[in-house]
Each structure stands twice: as structure tokens, then as C-alpha cells.
Design a protein around this nucleic acid. Structure first.
Length: 481
RNA sequence: GGUGGCGUCGCCAAGUGGUAAGGCCAGAGUCUGCAAAACUCUUAUCGUCGGUUCAAUUCCGACCGCCACCUCCA
């Protein structure tokens, strides 16, 4: 069964077939680096990351390109306010972007092109469009002549008259048509600029994506990703520029990520109702934030709240407990050995549950990357495993090991599992003998029914964020947060 | 005005033309010296009204409510 992707261009689910067998090219619209990113921005970055991980999981070779818009009006204005140069601001926020996204476990793209490093390519593309009569120069600025592209509006399904009816379009007298947009903006005094055939200026927003996508991925890319707000006009304009210049389709599948909301409203920079990703990361582990973000399908709005994050934290605890328990049972297994004939009924039952999870997971992800459903399949298996462990019905360690591996593998596609062992490894090495000693002393006290002593040890440790867990197999300890 | 989306258990959230995954919370248990932790069990007829159909939450229509894009915003 194959992967199906919802294509914004056709407004329906389509069978996914990359143009080059086994290889997928993806372009994802990246941040404009005038500020830190918020969780809403992170949602799109994370969806990109997961789509890429899943395609790799399915065996594709993926080339992912994500741009950094490092020159635009917002950057210039913010830099001016801060009293630094636009490039300094862009550089700092670019670094912060990578820092934040990598903390969230987002793997860097294969290429992160910057607008200011592709001025030549953009000028070339603009020149092509001028030569084709699709652009015109006014006072050192270059505008795209929307009328010259008959397919204009095919992505957003907007008719020219609809656009003109919108009273919010600012009319620029210099434009032939209100819908025309600038590809090259003449510099005003004091603004950063680059030399061009039309004078000093800077590129427009849409032209960068067109030229950087084509430079790094070719004239036709497989998947073009972005937030749903970019559908119009940004992506519509990218199509207009690119396709008029090349004569071939610009992107084969257009994927748009729905908004993250807060209090029912869109989280946005201009609303000033955003939570910075780094703030969230200071409070919650990456896996928790990821779990929250994948708990809804990417094309559905998701509402941010502290409660939701706490819900994800609790859910993840259940998952981690299961995985940690399985790890204790895990053994080295000989993959090549066929143990089919040696399976007990209980073994076989768990094996089929594992296989069901893998099938369901794949099916969910194959259906337009339905992460919410995929997570569901993982938790269904968790439940089955827990029951099996409680029942102590003689499932072999081999099978528990298989379950362990299957869970790790699928969770890694979503990036919702990370064991804390590494974090605590050093501490553990030092603390373990000491805590074992304390647990021994406590056990002695318990044997003597000296509850004062045993409870004191328990209470004092909890103050140190170390929790004692009494089970029928003895006492263990763990860090709590 | 144009375009698109949403309304499923207390909360979050999948899904299907034939009577609804999963998570959280809550309640009840198991375990325990008591607890905690952990685990188990239990809880929905799908906004309203019509229509199509043997059968609709799932298709169509109307209505109500909410959100978004058309201006920078992932």
C-alpha cells in the first residue's frame, strides 16, 4: 500500500510518486529571521521533519531544502530599532533558529539557503521574466505582471475580480494591476541594498523561494511545504514566477500546515499572542512538545494550552514506562533465527499485536501523514503489552525484545521517545551505590517494622526529587521532575 | 464581498455508509505496613433540522456557532 498525500493544488488526496524513483525533493518555507520562532512556526518545521523522517523510514532518499529569509522589511525595521545592522540581526536569529529547532529534535535540512547569498540567481530569474514580458520596471523596482500568467490563481482558486473586490488590497499607483507584486524593491536611503541591472535594491519575498528552490532542487520539486497562510499570495506567486520562467510545474505536491492556535485564535507574531519555542522548551522536554504537536493531524488546527502539554507529559510517561519495562526484559536476539515454530500461544498473540501496530502505524502515516492515528496505534500496543506483563503469562523475552524494538522504531519516526539515561548517566554512576545503600537500610528497617526510619528515608529522598517505588519485586528509585 | 476549514465522551483527538481509535481527567480495583508510583477495569450515537439510502456520525441541502486567508505572519 502506498503513500497518499493531500495536495492543496488539487484539493484532494493523491497517490504519492516522486518524479525520480526512490528520491524525493522537498522544499519547506523557512523562517524570516527577525525574531525567535514561536511554537506555531515550530509546528510547520516539525511537520517537515516528520514527513522527511517518515519518507526515510519508507526507504526513500530525501533531499530537504529549507530557506532562511535573511533580508526583508521586518528585519530592516527591527534592526533599526535595536541599533544593529540587518545582517547582524539576521545572523543572530538564524543561529537561534537552529538552536531552537535542534533542541526540539528537528534534524537540519540538507541545505539551508539564505536569500542574501542568492541575489545573483534571483536577478537572473527576474531578468528572464522581464525578457518574457512578464515583468516591468518602475523607478528601480521590478514588478511581476500577473496578467501575463494565465494560470494565476490555480492554487488559491481566486479569480482576479475576487481579488480586486477585497477592499484591503493597498493600491500602488505605480503598478499596472493591483495584483502585481514586487520581485525587486528599490532601496530607500539608508536601507541595505545590492546592485542590480535596475539599480540598488533588494529582492522581494516570493522570488527568493522560487530561485532557491530551483537552484537546489531543480525546476520541478516533489513536495513544497509551508504554513497555510503562505498559500496566498506567497505560494501562488512562487508558482507564477517559476512556471512562467521554466514552462514546467514548479511543485508536484503542495502541503500546507494548519495553524497552531491559542485561546481559539491563530498564534501569530502580529497578534502578539505567541509562545516562543525556546520558552516552551525551558519548561517541557522536547518529546512532550513533539507529542503535543503530533497529537492532531497537520491539516487541522491545534490549540495550544498548558493543559495540553501536561496531558502530553502524562501520556508520554505511560509510553516511557512501558518501553523502560520492556528494556529490562530485552535480550540479544538472533534476527536470522526463525523462531516461528517455538512460539507459545501467548507469544504468538503478542507478535500479532506488534505486527498489527506496525501495519496500523504505516497505514496511518501513509494516509497523509496521520500522526494522531499513528500515535493511537502505538498506545494500543502499549496497552496490550502492559496486560501481557501483568498476566505474567510466559511471553518470552525474545518477543518482549521485538516489542521493544518495534516501539522504539516507530516512536523515533515521530521523535516522541528519548530515554533520559544519557542525561543522568554520570549522576547515576555516582549515586547508584549510595542509593542502593539507602534502599538496603530502608529495607532492613521495614523488615524490623521500623516505619519511622523507612518513611524518613522515603520522605527525605522525595525532597531531593528521588522517588522510591515499592513493588512486589523490591524497591527501586528514579528521578522525578 | 470572495475562498477554505471546523463543530465527535468532562477535556484533547482519530475515524468509518452498517451502530465510534488513542490520550488526559475521574471513579473502581490490584500491589503496599501506610503511601506513592505502576498497572488493570469502567464511561460517547458524533452542532441543529431536513433529504438520499435497506442503513448516515460518515453523502447532499439548509441553518446555527467558531476559525482562517484575501495586508506582514508558519
Amino acid at each position: 500500500m502506498g503513500l497518499k498525500v493531500y495536495n492543496s493544488l488539487s484539493r484532494q488526496l493523491e497517490e504519492f510518486t516522486p518524479q525520480n524513483h526512490g528520491n524525493v525533493s522537498i522544499y519547506s518555507c523557512g523562517p524570516t529571521v527577525y525574531d525567535y520562532i514561536h511554537i506555531g512556526n515550530a509546528r510547520t518545521a516539525l511537520v517537515t521533519d516528520i514527513i522527511r523522517r517518515y519518507l526515510v523510514y519508507k526507504g526513500y532518499t530525501v533531499k530537504l531544502v529549507q530557506n532562511l529569509t535573511d533580508i526583508d522589511d521586518k528585519i530592516i525595521n527591527r534592526a533599526h530599532t535595536l541599533g544593529i545592522s540587518a545582517s547582524e540581526l539576521a545572523h543572530a536569529n538564524g543561529l537561534a533558529y537552529f538552536e531552537d529547532t535542534q533542541r526540539l529534535g528537528i534534524q537540519p535540512a540538507d541545505v539551508h539557503p539564505k536569500a542574501t547569498e542568492h541575489i545573483t540567481e534571483m536577478i537572473d530569474l527576474i531578468q528572464i521574466l522581464i525578457d518574457k514580458g512578464a515583468a516591468y520596471v518602475v523607478d528601480g523596482s521590478v514588478y511581476y505582471r500577473v496578467n501575463s500568467f494565465s494560470d494565476y490563481g490555480k492554487l488559491s482558486r481566486r479569480k482576479p475580480e475576487d481579488l480586486l473586490a477585497g477592499a484591503r488590497v493597498e493600491v500602488d499607483e505605480r503598478k499596472e494591476d493591483p495584483r502585481d507584486f514586487d520581485m525587486w524593491k528599490a532601496a530607500k536611503p539608508g536601507e541595505p541594498f545590492w546592485e542590480s541591472p535596475w539599480g540598488q535594491g533588494r529582492p522581494g519575498w516570493h522570488i527568493e523561494c522560487s530561485s532557491m528552490a530551483m537552484k537546489h532542487l531543480g525546476e520541478t520539486i516533489d513536495i513544497h511545504l509551508g504554513g497555510e497562510d503562505l498559500l496566498f499570495p506567497h505560494h501562488e506567486n512562487e508558482i507564477a514566477q517559476s512556471e512562467l520562467a521554466t514552462g514546467v510545474p514548479f511543485a508536484r505536491y503542495w502541503v500546507h500546515v494548519a495553524f497552531l492556535k491559542i485561546g481559539g485564535k491563530r498564534m501569530g507574531k502580529s497578534e502578539k499572542n505567541f509562545i516562543l519555542l525556546r520558552e516552551a522548551l525551558d519548561k517541557y522536554p522536547p518529546a512532550v512538545i513533539r507529542h503535543f504537536l503530533v497529537s492532531a493531524h497537520y491539516r487541522h488546527p491545534l490549540d495550544y494550552s498548558l493543559e495540553s502539554l501536561q496531558t502530553s507529559e502524562s501520556a508520554l510517561k505511560r509510553l516511557n514506562n512501558c518501553i523502560d519495562t520492556l528494556e529490562k526484559y530485552s535480550v540479544d536476539i538472533d534476527e536470522s533465527k526463525d523462531i516461528k515454530n517455538e512460539l507459545t500461544t501467548e507469544d504468538a498473540s503478542l507478535v500479532s499485536a506488534i505486527e498489527k501496530m506496525q501495519t496500523d502505524f504505516t497505514q496511518a502515516m501513509d494516509t497523509d501523514f496521520n500522526t494522531a492515528q499513528a500515535v493511537g496505534s502505538i498506545f494500543t500496543l502499549v496497552s496490550t503489552i502492559n496486560k501481557s506483563i501483568v498476566a505474567t503469562n510466559g511471553v518470552s523475552n525474545h518477543i518482549y525484545t521485538r516489542a521493544y524494538k518495534a516501539l522504539i522504531e516507530t516512536c523515533e519516526v515521530l521523535g516522541i521517545y528519548s530515554n533520559n539515561e544519557d542525561v543522568h548517566a554520570q549522576t547515576n554512576e555516582y549515586l547508584e551505590p549510595v542509593l542502593d545503600l539507602l534502599l538496603d537500610i530502608r529495607q532492613d528497617a521495614r523488615n524490623r517494622k521500623d516505619w519511622d526510619t523507612s518513611d524518613m528515608i522515603r520522605d527525605r529522598l522525595i525532597e531531593l526529587n528521588i522517588e522510591i517505588q515499592d513493588t512486589k519485586d523490591g524497591s527501586t528509585w528514579k528521578f522525578i521532575s
